[in-house]
Simulated scan of single mutants.
Amino acid sequence: MTDSLKSDPHFFSAWADSWWDTDSKMNPLKSFNPLRFAYFDPYAADGWEGVRVLDVGCGGGYTTEFLHARGSVVSGVDVSPKLVAAARRHAEQTGKDIDYRVGAAEALPFDDAAFDIVTCVDVLEHVQSPRAAVAEIHRVLRPGGLFMYDTINRTFMSRVMMIWLPERVLGIVPKGAHDWNDFITPAEMNAHLTSAGFTPIGAAKGIAIRGQNKDGSLKAKLTSDISSLYLGVARR
């Protein structure tokens, strides 16, 4: 697939050395975490303090550090050795105890039932096999554990909002970051979840991107529209 991470799993490695720079090309990704966790938080009934959390596809560590700040016992895994090195380096420089490992979502380097919660954000549309990745996430979760994710719907709207506008017009996402053919419809996602043994809970929500602020952060909000980027939660 042309320009797909399925043919280049290390696409984002090119930004590893600058991941945490103030003018990093990846900085807009930080804007999603407050919105994601505004959606996820009600499902984490006991809060995040002391909870064992794995972030699958952690990249350079934006979400793992967000979780660490909430008191979670955090691990992160990414297929890119360069991104894992960048994440480790920043955690060490800022005094954060985060367990980072190199590994694919479809073959997680962790024991069965090792985590209370697994997060996987902006990742499933990039992996070789979303179904295998979801099955592996199920394996590493304890019984009753939660899988919290977001991914991108395969619609005309997502082609406009997630590829054409951010990559080709606004230039806030590197060209080639997404392949529309790799996007996952909610029906397909639910099939992956049920096949793995998950029970979806709650109603999915979307994130609408409205533009970019002067500081590089994104103008975005939670919405009931799931035609583009959408979030969900499932229980093991």
Rank of each mutant, 00 (worst) to 15 (best):
Q128F: 01
M26L: 11
G50F: 05
D3R: 11
A114I: 14
I207A: 05
R159W: 15
A113E: 09
F147C: 13
F12N: 08
D215Q: 03
V134K: 03
N33I: 05
S4D: 12
I152K: 02
S18R: 03
A104T: 11
E106A: 10
R210H: 14
D41K: 15
M189Y: 00
A69W: 00
L165D: 04
S31D: 07
H126K: 04
N153H: 07
I152L: 08
A14I: 12
W15Q: 12
D46Q: 13
R139T: 04
E167H: 01
G216F: 10
F11Q: 10
A177Y: 14
S227T: 15
M189E: 12
I98F: 00
I152D: 08
D122A: 03
E125L: 07
H192L: 13
S13K: 11
A133G: 04
V77Q: 01
A133I: 06
I172C: 14
A114T: 10
W48F: 15
S18Y: 00
R236H: 11
A133E: 09
A14E: 10
R88W: 05
G103P: 08
L108D: 10
W164M: 15
S217K: 05
V79P: 02
R235T: 14
G171E: 08
K82E: 15
D55W: 01
H192T: 06
A208T: 12
V140I: 06
Y43F: 14
P186I: 08
Y149W: 06
R235I: 10
E106T: 10
P81S: 02
P34A: 01
L67G: 00
G197V: 14
R89G: 04
F115P: 02
V173R: 01
T185V: 09
A69T: 00
V123I: 14
V84N: 01
P200Y: 08
L35C: 05
V79A: 01
T64S: 15
T185S: 09
D41S: 15
L222P: 09
R154T: 05
G206Q: 13
T223F: 03
A208G: 07
G47T: 05
S7A: 15
I207R: 01
G59T: 02
H138F: 11
P9K: 00
I117G: 00
V77C: 05
E125M: 03
L229A: 14
V79T: 13
D17G: 01
C58I: 06
F147R: 00
A86E: 09
G171M: 04
S217R: 07
E167D: 10
D55P: 01
I184T: 07
D179N: 15
A114P: 08
D97H: 03
P166M: 04
F156T: 08
Q93Y: 00
A44M: 15
D116I: 07
Y39S: 07
W180Q: 13
I226H: 02
I98L: 06
K82D: 14
H178E: 12
R131A: 14
V233A: 01
A204I: 07
I163A: 01
S80M: 08
H10P: 11
A133T: 13
P109H: 13
W20I: 05
S80Y: 05
L170F: 09
M148G: 02
R139H: 03
W164D: 08
V53D: 09
R131Y: 01
